[in-house]
Computed example of a mutant assay.
Amino acid sequence: MRVTLHVCTTCTAGRPVAEGGQAPGARLLAALRTAGAPAGVRIEPVECLSACDHGCNIALTGPGRWSYVYRGLDPDTHVADILAGAAAYAASPDGLVPWRERPVIFRKQSLARIPPMES
């Protein structure tokens, strides 16, 4: 089953962006796309995840799965961990990856866990 890794492209990580510069969230999206999505994961931009004080932010969602929002991610250092976490999420049947199997950034930087929608 395909899951989506949403990347907030407007996240500034609490810092001003120089005129003509690229927001850290947009840099994170570019870095993730360059690295390549794991099997079963699609990477999609989103303009805001309403966690502006915590940027860079991502969300993982999928049909019939728990959804997660992660905060405080760095486009220069967290790309491999984000993709590893997304791959584990995609491989789980319900979005619940055992705690010890999650990358450390997913254990420490989870902002929200949202139950699956009823069908």
Rank of each mutant, 00 (worst) to 15 (best):
T4S: 14
C11M: 06
C11R: 03
T12I: 02
A13M: 03
R15P: 01
V17I: 01
A23T: 07
A23H: 07
A23F: 00
G25N: 00
G25V: 00
A26H: 03
A26Y: 01
L28P: 02
L28S: 05
L29F: 09
A30S: 14
A31M: 05
L32K: 04
R33V: 07
R33I: 01
G36C: 02
G40F: 10
R42A: 15
I43D: 03
E44H: 13
P45Q: 02
C48G: 06
L49I: 13
S50D: 14
C52P: 02
D53R: 13
C56N: 10
C56S: 13
N57Y: 02
N57H: 03
I58R: 01
A59P: 05
T61G: 10
G62Q: 11
G64T: 04
R65D: 06
W66I: 12
S67F: 10
Y70F: 15
R71K: 10
L73T: 05
P75T: 10
D76M: 02
H78L: 04
H78I: 01
H78F: 07
A80S: 14
D81S: 14
I82P: 04
L83H: 06
A86E: 09
P93Q: 11
D94M: 08
G95K: 05
G95Y: 04
P98Y: 07
R102Q: 15
R102I: 05
P103L: 09
P103I: 10
V104C: 04
F106V: 09
R107N: 13
R107G: 08
R107D: 11
K108Q: 15
Q109P: 00
S110P: 00
R113Y: 06
M117R: 15
